[in-house]
């Protein structure tokens, strides 16, 4: 009787193991990559993001809960280009998980598959928090998402090779839908071309590059250095000779500096979702850009 029970429970356990392994466990560093992984993997992946749209991905900590999630991940999907340098290396080392170490198939950096902008000519901390590899806020240009999706679909197919066809098919579907959406957004945003804007941080370089916005100034006096009253006053003076139409910030950046400047310069300050979850409408990557362009157009009227 006992031996039969043991046999039955073993059989049950054996059935449970593949069930537990069924989904690829993905830890994304930012919400946009969790959303993209879900687009490509569907029900085959379990993707969570280490940060939310209200958290600055430069500045979170390697919290115990994140170390526990990294421990069980099959794949980490991050931006790279040093965006997560303050916490990701520690997370990976503390995880005791060899699958997700840099150089392994379980480690994916989006920046590897995209041409980065703002590559600094010289590296000196006197220039603020400069990223040697270039500006890491690359997902704000949806054309980059197409390139990253190609590479990520291949990576998922490599990790979960039995389901390679599934990822290939979902990627083709995503590429078609995203390409069509990009064409639509581009025609909707044609009126924004050449519009001068002020950005809180270098978060909008890629969006500006895509839509042809002209970033005339940053609120931060140097990248990563928070604006002060003195630096904002100087900026206010500059805006008199070089006016801008909008001041842009992300959901995770403090509202105070842009509101301060908006009041005095007499131009609207606009919070854009920046990533998935950054506004009620930005529920996925398509909603993100629908909302971004809708808000830009409404504010520029």
């Amino acid at each position: 009787m006992l031996s039969r029970l043991i046999f039955l429970s073993l059989l049950l356990a054996l059935q449970c193991i593949p069930a537990a392994r069924a989904a690829v466990n993905v830890l994304a560093c930012e919400p946009e990559w969790a959303a993209l992984t879900l687009e490509l993997g569907g029900e085959r992946v379990r993707a969570t993001s280490a940060t939310t749209a209200r958290q600055d991905p430069h500045h979170i900590e390697a919290r115990p809960s994140l170390i526990a999630r990294a421990r069980n991940a099959d794949l980490v999907v991050c931006t790279g280009a040093d965006l997560e340098i303050g916490w990701l290396p520690l997370l990976l080392r503390e995880s005791g998980n060899p699958r997700i170490q840099p150089g392994q198939p379980g480690y994916f950096e989006a920046a590897d598959f995209v041409r980065l902008l703002d590559k600094p000519a010289s590296l000196d901390r006197g220039q603020g928090d400069v990223h040697a590899a270039g500006n890491p806020h690359l997902h704000a240009d949806p054309r980059n998402l197409l390139k990253v999706a190609d590479a990520l679909a291949q990576r998922l197919a490599r990790i979960d090779s039995a389901q390679a066809a599934h990822y290939g098919a979902r990627n083709r579907d995503f590429q078609a839908r995203m390409s069509a959406a990009i064409a639509r957004w581009e025609s909707e945003a044609a009126s924004l071309r050449g519009m001068p804007v002020v950005a809180h941080h270098k978060s909008w370089t890629y969006l500006a590059d895509w839509l042809g916005l002209r970033v005339v100034a940053d609120l931060e006096p140097k990248p990563g250095i928070e604006p002060s009253v003195a630096s904002l006053s100087a900026l206010l003076e500059r805006l008199k000779s070089q006016p801008a139409r909008l001041i842009l910030r992300t959901a995770y950046q403090a509202a105070k500096p842009s509101e301060w400047l908006a009041q005095r310069a007499g131009i609207p300050a606009l919070e854009l979702p920046y990533t998935v979850g950054g506004s009620p409408a930005a529920t996925d990557l398509f909603g993100l850009f629908d909302d971004t362009i809708g808000k830009l157009k409404a504010a520029s009227r």
């Binding site: 054309r143 190609d150 197919a157 390679a164 066809a165």
Partner: peptide
């Protein structure tokens, strides 16, 4: 890729 999305192989290389 930058201009038109190229189809990706259905199976892993």
């Amino acid at each position: 890729f930058a201009t038109t999305p190229a189809p990706t192989p259905a199976t892993a290389p």
